[in-house]
Design a binder for these strands. Structure first.
Lengths: 249, 249
DNA sequence: GCAAGTCTTACAGAACGCGAACGGTTGGCC
DNA sequence: GGCCAACCGTTCGCGTTCTGTAAGACTTGC
């Protein structure tokens, strides 16, 4: 397997110290907890309680990253997001309420860098902030193309092909496939996948099962007996390229 | 397959050994059971019976993680949690007597890192503690591959091979084999194994016996007369590689 | 030869994964 | 607007796999 992504992740979390994060949430409790965690991790945090202030602060402070709640008083979070994107390319992490309709798809289509479903563990937020920042700093190219065997996946264009033929993957399927391609030869539990790919902190694990099944239907030659996206009984799933594995390594 | 990953910064449960956990619960029975399980998994456990002591100990001991009961005499658990957050960002797992799924959401919404409803299985607690700690250290960094003679065991991929041929091990068998490979030439009693591999403090020791047998069936050339996974009569089991064993020892 | 420890086998319950199908929502198209 | 297709998350039933335990045969040390 030749994952050409090769993000040379020589960027430690130390290099993120002092980066400015703008936190936009109208719930004081959430804002307080989240910001204290972010500060503890070395970030400089500014808070905004509504969309209008957020837009002003974004311009004034020029933060390195913005954490944006989708539900805001006044201007809607998504609207704020669109206006932000018109003016600057600052990375944005969207917070979505799982209970209500999930506009995660809309947010993602609009180009959010990551999303997290409420309620989330504050530590999870820190991890995502670090991850997105590391990515945006390290490579100026937003996302490099993943290549693996006959598969080719372009995260920016959201196009996945097998042997040149485009696979019509849905949003979820694409996200799932992207994550697996980025971490080949590693087993992930359904919970892991639900947390990282879906951005959920809790939820029905069978959701993962079903989507894995649907993804198999599209990428496996014989979906009945998967060769690449295999089940590890009692643990989870693993993606690895077939034939001769890394015995040479 | 040319995954250049191989960054051997493993974060298996081994690396969690010695981490300090502060356990806050007013029920002595619960505290005793929970702490004995946590200790058995290698954690250093301190206990506190009320909120005030908890706050003091949290400052004094600077634990790596805090398990906090929501119902406490004196200061309420949630209040303790809020005061903790003001001063430090130590991961917190909340416990509550009321056991519905909604409470988990409430706990997470309050900013806890994880949440567990009473009555909980002590094993579950250990798993959660490990999970949260591992996550706070850094996620999905592949563990280093164990190699021993013709055996090769990849903890992240959950693949074990002998001379390149994959051994289909079950979860338990894999865990057991992994532990033994990490501690070769060392004798472990059935109780040791039950504690470390299974995470149990009590239980039927024959469980270990049977699993050792099953493992032998898969890794030994002649399971009838084991050469590597040998029995030390009256003591337990030892894994050592073939050829000239420890006759010198 | 005896007792304690170990091995082997068998079994039933539990856990798990899979497939199929369903209702709900969204977004496009007439 | 209203119909239709696509997608998503959930649920249920079924077959499979795994696991712990019990019971008997066997081995070891004394």
């Amino acid at each position: 397997m030749n994952v050409s992504a090769a993000a040379p992740s020589s960027i430690g979390n130390e290099d993120l110290v002092g980066r400015r994060v703008l936190l936009v949430d109208d719930d004081p409790t959430v804002a307080e907890v989240a910001s204290s965690y972010l500060r503890a991790s070395g970030f400089v945090v500014e808070e905004a309680g509504d969309g209008f202030t957020a837009l002003q602060d974004a311009e004034r402070l020029a933060p390195d990253l913005i954490v944006l709640d989708r539900m805001l008083p006044g201007i809607d979070g998504l609207e704020v997001f669109r206006r932000l994107r018109e003016r600057m390319s600052t990375p944005v992490i969207l917070l979505t309420a799982l209970g209500s309709e999930d506009d995660r798809i809309a947010g993602l289509a609009a180009g959010a860098d990551d999303y997290l479903a409420k309620p989330f563990s504050p530590r999870e937020l820190v991890l995502r902030v670090q991850s997105v920042l590391r990515r945006s700093i390290g490579e100026f190219t937003p996302e490099s193309v993943l290549e693996c065997g006959e598969f080719r996946l372009d995260p920016s264009a959201r196009i996945a092909t097998r042997a040149g033929v485009e696979l019509s993957l849905t949003v979820r399927e694409f996200d799932l496939f992207e994550f697996l391609l980025k971490h080949p030869n590693q087993v992930f539990s359904r919970e892991d996948l639900l947390r990282t790919v879906w951005g959920w902190t809790y939820g029905d694990l069978s959701t993962v099962t079903v989507h894995v099944r649907r993804l198999r239907e599209k990428i496996e030659r014989d979906p009945r007996s998967p060769a690449m996206l295999t089940t590890v009984w009692g643990v989870g799933y693993r993606f690895s390229m077939g034939g001769v594995p890394d015995a040479v390594v």
